[in-house]
Amino acid sequence: MSVNSISLVGRAGRDPEVRYFESGSIVANLTIAVNRRSKQDEPDWFNLEIWGKQAQVAADYVKKGSLIGITGSFKLDQWKDKNTGEDRFKPVVRVDRLELLGGRKEEGGFSNNEPPMARSTEEDIPF
């Protein structure tokens, strides 16, 4: 049995780069920084590739610093460098599922997945 599955939770390293194709397809590319257990360690960075409706969600709601969760599979892009002719490789996570996690105020507004009516006030707390 073979399984190629990866799940990550982290913060977007940049706004998604979105491309639209004449066929109607859409792809969003961005990076995600995932912290390690120790606060002293640098985060791990992953390249993400998101297609279809999930890509449109990323384009509309994910910004640099957004907390997101993803599930997908690992792939290795490879190509020949046009200048040197050398083989090049880039590890990429092909995202199958994108979740917007946020939940706190960001940049003076509400987070991407928390509309104003969903926020509680001190008056809503029963104690």
Rank of each mutant, 00 (worst) to 15 (best):
M1T: 06
S2E: 13
S2C: 07
S2G: 04
S5P: 00
V9P: 01
G10E: 15
R11F: 08
R11Q: 15
A12Q: 08
A12Y: 04
G13W: 01
G13N: 08
R14S: 14
D15W: 02
P16E: 02
V18S: 09
F21N: 00
E22Q: 15
I26G: 03
N29R: 14
I32F: 04
R37Q: 11
K39H: 07
D41V: 02
F46T: 14
N47D: 14
L48K: 04
G52R: 15
K53M: 11
A55L: 00
V57C: 08
A58C: 06
K64C: 03
K64H: 02
L67W: 02
L67N: 08
I68R: 09
I68A: 12
G69W: 01
G72F: 05
S73W: 05
F74L: 15
D77P: 02
D77K: 12
Q78M: 07
K82V: 10
K82C: 06
T84V: 11
F89K: 15
K90L: 15
V92G: 07
V92H: 06
V92L: 14
V95G: 09
V95N: 09
V95M: 10
D96P: 00
R97D: 10
R97E: 15
L98Y: 01
L100N: 05
G103H: 05
R104I: 05
R104T: 13
E107N: 15
G108A: 04
G108S: 03
G109Q: 14
G109H: 11
F110S: 12
F110C: 05
S111I: 09
S111T: 08
P115G: 07
M117P: 01
A118V: 04
S120I: 10
T121D: 14
T121W: 06
I125C: 07
P126V: 10
F127C: 11
